[in-house]
């Protein structure tokens, strides 16, 4: 498949639907003549592609040494406590899925996280609390 790149196709579907459902993958499989086994093999290799339903906001907290040195563990504990979940889970209200990720390249503004791909930097527990409140408000409006 030289003309259309599979990674870009998968991303486009995930952008629209939030994750790569079996139904969407079947559609891609038929359209581009790629076996489902191959699609799952690729989709599950990359951490930013997800084959399970996600919360409205996917939070990826950076766990690299620069962020750890700048107290990212406090943020991690706060997120788990506040959302009553563990890393890798989705909150009961289906609003937040939280993951720990490798370096997101914001080491000069550590600690940092991505929310649906957008960077939030120089985090403190207070700031994360505000961010969560704002996201909740946006979700309800």
């Amino acid at each position: 498949m030289k003309d259309k790149l599979l990674l870009n196709i998968l991303h486009e579907v995930q952008d629209k639907e939030g994750y790569l459902s079996e139904k969407s993958l079947k559609k891609i499989s038929v359209e581009y003549n790629i076996p489902m086994s191959k699609l799952y093999s690729v989709a599950t290799f990359y951490t930013m592609l997800r084959t399970k339903k996600q919360g409205k906001y996917v939070i990826e907290l950076c766990g690299s040494p620069s962020c750890v040195l700048n107290k990212s563990r406090e943020i991690e504990k706060f997120l788990e406590r506040e959302l009553k979940i563990e890393i890798g889970e989705t909150s009961k209200d289906d609003l937040f899925s939280v993951y720990k990720t490798s370096c997101i390249g914001c080491c000069d503004e550590a600690p940092a996280m991505l929310v649906n791909g957008e960077p939030y930097t120089k985090l403190t527990v207070k700031r994360v609390k505000e961010i969560l409140e704002e996201l909740r408000k946006n979700a309800n409006s």
């Binding site: 790149l5 990674l7 870009n8 998968l10 991303h11 990359y46 951490t47 930013m48 592609l49 490798s102």
Partner: peptide, 10 residues
Amino acid sequence: IEIVRGAGAY
């Protein structure tokens, strides 16, 4: 020139 969207694999 096409941008290929990586997906979080170091």
